[in-house]
Simulated scan of single mutants.
Amino acid sequence: MKVKKVFNNNIILAEDAKLLEVILMGKGIGYSVNPGDIPSEEKIEKVFRIDSEELQNRFVKLVNDIPINHIELTKK
């Protein structure tokens, strides 16, 4: 796995071996980590991923139905 984005000390976005994005949670997993680094396996407590193509399609459809200003608001 490779870190793509650090959200905070406990949550990061990473890319797995299949080049799919996953959310990793764990105490201190994002501390002193930069994009491109390999996350510490011992710190991973939870992994969130969309495995099936059907779920991916449903998720994309759902996101497309959300107004962009709502997405921007949640990002802030």
Score class of each variant (00 low, 15 high):
G26C: 06
I50M: 09
D16P: 00
I71C: 05
I71H: 02
D51K: 13
I12Y: 01
E15K: 08
V47F: 08
N57Q: 09
I44V: 11
N10F: 04
P35L: 02
I66L: 07
I12P: 01
E45K: 06
I50C: 08
K46A: 08
K75H: 12
E42Y: 07
N10G: 02
L13D: 05
N64Y: 00
K43V: 08
K27N: 15
P67S: 07
P35I: 00
I12M: 05
V3Y: 01
A17P: 01
L19W: 00
V63Q: 07
A14C: 09
E41Q: 13
L55G: 13
S32F: 12
P39Y: 01
F59D: 13
I71Y: 04
S40D: 15
S32N: 15
Y31E: 14
K4P: 03
I11A: 09
Y31G: 07
V63F: 03
N64C: 06
I71V: 08
D37W: 05
R58M: 14
N57E: 12
I38E: 15
L13E: 06
G26T: 03
N34P: 06
L19N: 14
I29P: 00
D37I: 05
G30N: 03
P39L: 03
I12N: 02
P39T: 03
L62V: 14
S32Y: 11
K75S: 14
L13M: 10
L24F: 03
D16Q: 03
V33D: 07
P39R: 05
V22R: 09
S52I: 11
V6P: 00
K5H: 10
L55Q: 13
D65E: 15
V33E: 08
N8W: 03
I12L: 06
P67E: 09
L20I: 00
I66T: 05
K18D: 15
P35T: 01
I23D: 08
V6T: 00
E15N: 08
L24K: 08
I71W: 01
K46T: 13
M1A: 06
K75Q: 15
I66H: 02
V33L: 11
S52M: 09
M25V: 09
K43W: 07
F7M: 05
V33Q: 10
K75N: 14
R58V: 12
L19D: 15
K76W: 00
S32Q: 15
I68A: 12
S40G: 10
L19E: 15
I50P: 05
E45Y: 06
E42G: 05
G26I: 02
N9D: 11
A14K: 00
L19P: 04
E54Y: 02
V6K: 01
N10H: 12
A14P: 04
P39K: 04
P39E: 06
F48A: 13
I68V: 14
F59N: 12
N10R: 04
E72L: 12
P67D: 09
E72W: 01
M1V: 04
V47N: 11
D51F: 00
S40C: 11
P67W: 05
E42Q: 10
E53V: 07
V47D: 11
V33A: 07
K4E: 15
